[in-house]
Simulated scan of single mutants.
Amino acid sequence: MNRPPTPDAYFDGMYRDAEDPWRLAERWYERRKYDLTVAALPLPRYRRAFEPGCSVGELTRRLAARCDTVLACDRVESAVETTRRRTDGLPGVTVRRLRIPEEWPEGTFDLIVLSELLYYLDDSALDTLLDRTVAALEPGGTLVTVHWDHPVDEHLTTGTGIARRLDGRPGLDLLVDHREEDFVLQVHRRPGPDGRRAPGVAAREGLV
């Protein structure tokens, strides 16, 4: 039976007790995972990135170094304020309070990053979010997903479960499938305008 989504009260309570409740800025596990996430991006530079569920902005800061503009958002106002403060002075970063997937930004993106977000959504909301993600991803654009792979009471699935939901989804080609004991990191790309799969990193560099 499909479980309901994680309630807003859970997130409000977490941030009420601590500015960075998951200690994202200090744990080596988190810092290494963020660095791996950015390292997995197949392009050296992106024009417009979207990062829903940005929390306190640690991944946002890393994305800003690879993107002309980054739109980051979170449903919790205190997390939005923390991210704004931590990204203050970084060119091209905009932080908004949005409830995803009910609220969705206008325009398209050549990079969308879904980090530690999808396991909070029930089946209906997850399908809506993925549909909107694919629709907002430009031809040739990159989708990154990375999620904790252990059971948690507040999580409706795991990183492995999310990978299964993405497997074979129309409009996405799998480029990277990195799995560790603790998390699953995947990179998908939307096919080009002609429907063909875009060349890999080595092919673009003329190595193959």
Rank of each mutant, 00 (worst) to 15 (best):
101 P>D: 07
187 V>T: 10
85 R>I: 03
111 L>W: 07
112 I>Q: 07
58 E>K: 01
146 V>N: 12
106 E>T: 02
142 T>Q: 06
72 A>R: 04
37 T>F: 03
30 E>S: 11
38 V>E: 10
115 S>I: 04
48 R>F: 02
114 L>N: 11
164 R>L: 14
135 A>I: 05
29 Y>S: 13
149 D>H: 01
159 G>R: 07
152 V>Y: 13
1 M>Y: 10
127 D>N: 12
139 P>M: 13
116 E>G: 07
131 D>A: 14
57 G>I: 08
43 L>N: 12
5 P>S: 15
108 T>W: 00
161 G>H: 04
97 R>N: 06
62 R>W: 02
103 E>D: 12
151 P>W: 10
201 V>C: 00
109 F>P: 00
18 A>W: 00
13 G>L: 01
165 R>Y: 09
187 V>A: 11
24 L>W: 09
173 D>K: 02
75 R>I: 14
82 T>H: 05
53 G>M: 07
74 D>W: 05
84 R>C: 07
55 S>T: 03
74 D>F: 12
7 P>S: 04
135 A>P: 00
164 R>C: 08
196 R>G: 15
104 W>Q: 01
115 S>L: 08
186 Q>E: 13
40 A>G: 05
104 W>L: 02
15 Y>F: 15
169 R>S: 08
87 T>H: 00
203 A>H: 05
200 G>C: 11
71 L>Y: 01
138 E>A: 15
207 L>W: 14
69 T>Y: 00
87 T>E: 00
80 V>E: 07
90 L>Q: 01
77 E>C: 01
161 G>N: 11
58 E>S: 09
131 D>P: 10
81 E>H: 08
21 P>R: 11
171 G>V: 11
203 A>L: 10
19 E>G: 05
150 H>Y: 13
49 A>I: 03
111 L>A: 10
84 R>D: 04
82 T>V: 15
69 T>W: 04
73 C>Q: 05
143 L>P: 10
6 T>F: 04
107 G>Q: 04
7 P>A: 06
126 L>F: 12
141 G>W: 06
184 V>D: 05
148 W>R: 10
174 L>C: 05
15 Y>S: 11
109 F>V: 06
72 A>E: 07
13 G>P: 04
109 F>T: 05
168 G>I: 13
206 G>C: 11
61 R>V: 06
81 E>W: 02
120 Y>S: 03
196 R>A: 15
26 E>R: 13
3 R>Q: 12
92 G>R: 07
67 C>I: 01
109 F>D: 06
47 R>T: 14
24 L>M: 14
203 A>V: 15
197 R>T: 15
128 T>F: 00
162 I>E: 09
77 E>S: 12
80 V>D: 03
108 T>M: 09
34 Y>P: 00
162 I>G: 05
40 A>K: 03
137 L>Q: 01
100 I>R: 03
23 R>Q: 14
1 M>C: 09
61 R>M: 05
168 G>P: 02
49 A>M: 06
75 R>G: 15
171 G>K: 04
39 A>V: 06
144 V>Y: 07
111 L>I: 07
14 M>L: 15
206 G>Q: 11
172 L>I: 05
30 E>W: 01
162 I>C: 08
207 L>D: 03
150 H>N: 02
131 D>F: 05
92 G>M: 11
